[in-house]
Structure formats: structure tokens, C-alpha cells
């Protein structure tokens, strides 16, 4: 909690004193980073710190795809299957990875290691296919490359 308060203090300096609610996305992101996912308690914490209603925190937490309102695996792997990546082979990769991990789209492996899902355009169409692993971008993917990355996740 000390870390949350300290880092939120730094974030709040970027917004006018009377506009603290503007920090809702960064506050939720920080909460997610520290507490793992945005449980109702974490949403409430953010709302209180920013002087706004819990409904506002929930509205934001549930609207943006990078904000997680449910528990997930230790790692989140998000493969782009949008038009640019699919034209470059991402559709096959998606099928192959589902099979390899033994999960459906959005599912978590039995050992809780990886949550896997397809996502919309990551803005990497020139270096497709692309994916995010715990928010870090990996580009120019091949199946071998992906398998290596997945193998390195503990």
C-alpha cells in the first residue's frame, strides 16, 4: 500500500490539483501492477484516492481492454490477429498456440502460467505478426520465436 500511495503521488503531479480524477487510468494501471488485478476493492481504493465515485472507477476498469477485472494467469499473452497480422500468418499462429497451450481464446493454462487471447491491431502491421507478453511488444514473430518466448515464461 505504501508503494501504491508513493507512486500515485508522483502520477498526480501531472494533473491540475482540482482534476485528480483524470488520473483514473494511470491509478488503475498502478493498482493492477501492484495487486495483480482490479478487484472491486482495488477499484474502490482508486476511486477514493482520486476523490471520485466507485462507479467511475468501475466504468473505466471495465471499458479498457488492458485493464483486468478478473484474475488471470501469471503471464498474459496477447496475439494480434487483426488484418495486418492475419495477412502475415497470425491466424495460423493463433490456432497453433491455442493447441499448444491447450486453451481456448481467453483461457488460462491449467498450471496458471499463461492467459492467452487474441487482440485487435497493435500498430505493428509493418513488423507483423506481433504480440504483447505482459504488455511488452514482440514483433516479426514466427512460430519458433513464439515458442521460445513462451518457454521462457515461468
Amino acid at each position: 500500500m505504501a508503494r501504491f500511495n508513493a507512486e500515485l503521488g508522483v502520477i498526480l503531479k501531472r494533473y491540475p490539483e482540482d482534476r485528480k480524477a483524470a488520473a483514473m487510468i494511470p491509478a488503475l494501471r498502478l493498482g493492477q501492477e501492484i495487486f495483480g488485478w482490479l478487484s472491486p476493492a482495488v477499484q474502490l481504493l482508486c476511486a477514493e484516492r482520486l476523490g471520485t465515485s466507485p462507479a467511475r472507477a468501475e466504468e473505466v476498469a471495465t471499458f479498457y481492454v488492458m485493464l483486468e477485472t478478473h484474475p488471470h494467469g501469471r503471464h498474459v499473452v496477447e496475439l494480434c490477429t487483426s488484418i495486418g497480422c492475419s495477412l502475415s500468418g497470425a491466424h495460423r499462429m493463433f490456432q497453433a498456440l491455442k493447441q499448444k497451450l491447450g486453451v481456448e481464446n481467453g483461457g488460462t493454462t491449467a498450471d496458471g502460467r499463461v492467459t492467452f487471447r487474441e487482440v485487435e491491431c497493435l500498430g505493428s502491421c509493418g513488423t507483423a505478426p506481433a504480440m504483447l507478453v505482459d504488455e511488452d511488444m514482440h514483433e516479426r514473430l514466427t512460430l519458433e520465436k513464439v515458442e521460445k518466448i513462451l518457454g521462457g515464461l515461468k
Partner: peptide, 27 residues
């Protein structure tokens, strides 16, 4: 000048949705 990082929503590229998002709301 500050960086404000979004959280995954195409609609926030629409200018008025961008401002809503920057104000701490859904886009």
C-alpha cells in the same frame, strides 16, 4: 507537458473520446 497512457480502446483516437478518457472516464 505530460504523457498520458491509455489502456486499449480504438475509440479514444476519436478526439472527443480522447478528452473523455483523459478526464478519467470511459471513451
Amino acid at each position: 507537458l505530460h504523457v498520458h497512457r491509455g489502456a486499449g480502446a480504438y475509440i479514444c483516437g476519436e478526439e472527443s473520446a480522447l478528452m473523455e478518457s483523459l478526464e478519467g472516464k470511459k471513451g
